[in-house]
């Protein structure tokens, strides 16, 4: 399931389970490429939680995570950050991290 976070809801959304956090901007082309990859992954693994954070609409959360380049992705398992990638990585890299946080 994909949900859009706000500065107020972010921490609640990542505190349990396997979660991918995607810091993005609507005007960023690499972010759109990542969005496509994440949508396909969600088709295949609908039990995955994807939390999208629009950096323009969530300035507090973006500052807290020192987001300077996007896409910027964090992989959470039960509230702990397991991996972090900046930039438009390929689907294979995301799948590797997914395997880490899901099982």
């Amino acid at each position: 399931m994909t949900v859009y976070a706000s500065d107020g809801t972010f921490h609640d959304l990542v505190k349990e389970g396997a979660v991918i956090v995607d810091f993005f901007s609507k005007t960023c082309i690499p972010c759109k490429m990542i969005a496509r990859v994440l949508e396909e992954l969600e088709d295949e693994f609908p039990f995955l939680q994807i939390v999208k954070v629009d950096v323009e609409e969530c300035p507090k959360t973006s500052d807290e995570f020192h987001v300077n380049g996007i896409p910027d992705m964090y992989y959470y398992k039960d509230g702990e950050i397991v991996a972090h990638e900046v930039g438009a990585v390929g689907p294979e890299v995301i799948r590797e991290h997914l395997a880490e946080i899901l099982y």
Binding site: E44, F45, F47, R95, L98, A99, L102, Y103
Partner: peptide, 9 residues
């Protein structure tokens, strides 16, 4: 939860 053939599990 497992996606059959997804290869992640």
């Amino acid at each position: 939860p497992v996606t059959v053939g997804g290869g992640l599990y």
